[in-house]
């Protein structure tokens, strides 16, 4: 039987971690297209992990495909909430208590502002990931 985790309120000062595939990295930074919604219905949103229950390393290891290559970025929850029409919703999954959706339309403005707030947690280099200092 899988565990059901409670949905919690995420403080503004916490971080969200997100995987970025190597194909979505150009010039050492994620491309704006990396910030987009996935999933459907209630689960539609930009999938991230809450720093209270995850680390950049565990977020990276959660990639479903073992051949997955890329880096992990982090964003301050308060900065994400300042982006128009974006909401941060804890949406724990049975196997991932940290799972959090960033909901709201990823308009040109929203994606531009996401490009302003991300930072590397695990930077991807073509010959391997580089842990951030």
């Amino acid at each position: 039987m899988s565990k059901v985790w409670p949905t919690e309120q995420i403080p503004d000062e916490d971080l969200l971690f997100m995987r970025v595939h190597k194909n979505e990295i150009q010039g050492g930074a994620p491309i704006p297209g990396a910030f987009r919604n996935r999933g459907e219905g209630d689960q539609e949103g930009m999938s991230t992990d809450w720093s209270r229950y995850s680390t950049p390393e565990t977020t990276k290891l959660r990639a479903a495909n073992p051949a997955w290559k890329g880096g992990v970025i982090q964003m301050v929850v308060g900065d994400v909430r300042k982006i128009p029409s974006q909401t941060v919703a804890h949406a724990p999954l049975p196997d991932n208590r940290a799972h959090t959706n960033v909901k709201g339309q990823k308009s040109t403005q929203a994606r531009y502002l996401f490009m302003r707030v991300w930072r590397w947690a695990i930077e991807y280099k073509p010959d391997g990931p580089v842990p951030s200092s």
């Binding site: 491309i31 994606r111 531009y112």
Partner: peptide
């Protein structure tokens, strides 16, 4: 940066 965007679109990003 010229890159693919959501739903088959194309992004031009200057910084």
């Amino acid at each position: 940066v010229i890159s693919p965007g959501p739903e088959g679109s194309v992004d031009l990003y200057w910084t």
